[in-house]
């Protein structure tokens, strides 16, 4: 019998622990697929962070190191400086990257650190049960903004991709959304491009994924996708913010 589909070798056989409808699994899979397609899995070193994906070192079938909350870009810097020829990536959520780890991500980008960052933005802290994130939308109800995020009290969402795109050291930055087949394919192309940017030694690359958190949003998976499109996309437009014309 002909094999028509196989799970990527870039992932281990360990079952994901993610909630139903969460898109981390899809993001993991497309990263792993690209690592295999570009034949770089065996020279890749990934950095797990703190949050729902704290243990994705058990899922990616490559060398992995788990970092303290927000510090993944600094850890990746250390790894990459030792092994400049290896592919190095971080996988971080919005609390990790845009709150506690804001200094590390900004400076890794400013140094033009030749690493790839996968930034998963679901507008909420997932693992600790739905607190307001720096990326939470105005009016969004979370466990720490129970009456909705109020700009007078809690300020405004941070558009990380746009902000990092102002830095010279950042060479490729794209925001994608995990909402439907077409966009998932676009996300995969962005992942592939980011790794090519790194392989060619051009500097810092990042893909921001708009992602869902049905559990903490209190919505079904289908409702969550709709909510993402209707509410997140206006605040976080998808597109390439840096390196649009890069030919890699």
């Amino acid at each position: 019998m002909a094999i028509v589909f196989e799970k990527t070798k870039g992932l281990t056989d360990k079952p994901f622990h993610y909630c139903p409808g969460c898109t981390h699994g899809i993001i993991h899979r497309i990263i792993a697929e690209v690592l295999c397609e570009q034949d770089i899995l065996e020279n890749t070193i990934g950095v797990s962070s703190v949050g729902c994906t704290y243990n994705n070192y058990e899922y990616f079938a490559c060398d992995m190191v788990q970092a303290a909350h927000g510090r993944a870009p600094a850890v990746a810097t250390g790894v990459k400086r030792v092994h400049p020829g290896n592919t190095v990536f971080t996988y971080q959520g919005d609390g990790d990257l845009a709150s506690i780890g804001m200094a590390e991500i900004v400076h890794a980008a400013a140094r033009g650190e030749n690493i790839t960052v996968f930034f998963v933005n679901n507008a909420v802290y997932g693992m600790t049960s739905g607190q307001m994130a720096p990326t939470s939308l105005l009016g969004q109800v979370t466990t720490t903004s129970p009456f909705g995020r109020d700009s007078a009290v809690q300020g405004y969402p941070i558009n990380v991709s746009e902000m990092l795109a102002t830095l010279t050291g950042a060479k490729y930055i794209e925001r994608v959304m995990i909402s439907d087949f077409k966009n998932i394919q676009a996300a995969k192309r962005a992942v592939a491009k980011a790794f090519r940017v790194q392989k060619q030694g051009l500097g810092f690359s990042m893909v921001e994924f708009l992602s869902t958190c049905p559990t903490n949003w209190g919505k079904s998976p289908v409702e969550s996708i709709d909510w993402l499109k209707q509410n997140m996309v206006p605040q976080y437009p998808i597109g390439v913010f840096k390196g649009k014309d890069l030919e890699v």
């Binding site: 510090r71 250390g78 790894v79 400086r81 030792v82």
Partner: peptide, 12 residues
């Protein structure tokens, strides 16, 4: 950041 770079470099 410095100590976490050490963590990464040492892990490598």
């Amino acid at each position: 950041a410095a100590i976490n770079m050490v963590y990464g470099a040492s892990a490598a």
